[in-house]
Design a binder for these strands. Structure first.
Ligand code: SF4
Ligand code: SF4
Lengths: 133, 133
DNA sequence: TTAAATAGGACTATTTTGGTCTTATTTTAT
DNA sequence: ATAAAATAAGACCAAAATAGTCCTATTTAA
């Protein structure tokens, strides 16, 4: 589970939108508020669109909004929208990634850790995160 | 916390040595047994030397041994010997890595996750891992 | 003295990361 | 109608990290 800059930016972005619900927010505004390079953020928002996390409005006065309630968006969901599934070791994503996984005594540890981390990340939603200060 | 191939190989290697204590084991033997490219493994063993996890004997009939008892070598220790400190997000390694960390509501989550994962990895020692089947 | 082993450093190819840029399209306001 | 401001989509790129290899030197047992 390594969170790339891209995923971290996505989290910042969703967090900003969660703090500004009920209106349309432009890439430019998010970019400035959350210190994310604008054109990179535009790409990131396209990923979040595909994942159904945000919705967009085109044209002048256009921008983005959350597609769901903040409380229904988890940290895990946003990370996976950007990076796909991840884990501390490849065999915890898919045991077929390592031919040794069948007899490896370390393998179950990675699976267990993955489970625990994902549990924690699923618990964290953006209503919670936006409220905290 | 992403375990690279290099660190995974290191773990395999230490595990093999833990299963074969009391004698000197060559790179070639470990390489064949654990499916690690030989010349890469040689490099990895140099890292493990620096970290004080293994000791070497040069010359013909030379090779490697664990420098400590298997029960005193943790998974975390081996991973850090290869990769240095790691975490799910950069700010959990060093909060100065992100200028937002002071006011970021997500930051504490990464710190908490890191703590939990490292706790788990510290609990796992190579006596335990070598015994398991 | 030779063969087999580690020590160490230089080197390299590929993949991933972290972006940018350009062109097209949409929509509102004048 | 048209200009301005916004997203959409894809091509492109540089730098860093990853996953190694290779070569030379040194050590040491037989
Ligand atoms: S932990 Fe075991 S199964 Fe997982 S990648 Fe490493 S060797 Fe393979
Ligand atoms: S979680 Fe917050 S502090 Fe950590 S890197 Fe992301 S923005 Fe920075």
């Amino acid at each position: 589970m390594y969170v790339t800059r891209k995923a971290d930016y996505a989290i910042r972005c969703v967090l900003y939108l969660a703090k500004n619900t009920g209106r349309i927010t432009s890439v430019d505004e998010i970019s400035n508020a959350m210190y994310v390079p604008k054109s990179f953020l535009a790409k990131i928002l396209q990923c979040l669109m595909k994942a159904g996390i945000v919705s967009s409005t085109r044209g002048i006065k256009g921008g983005f909004q959350l597609a769901k309630e903040p409380k229904d968006i988890s940290l895990l969901e946003v990370i996976e929208a950007i990076q796909g599934p991840s884990a501390a070791n490849i065999c915890a994503i898919d045991k077929r990634m390592c031919s040794l996984s069948g007899r490896c005594t370390v393998h179950p540890i990675w699976v267990k850790i993955r489970k625990k981390v994902e549990q924690e990340l699923k618990k964290q939603n953006f209503a919670k995160l936006a409220k905290k200060r």
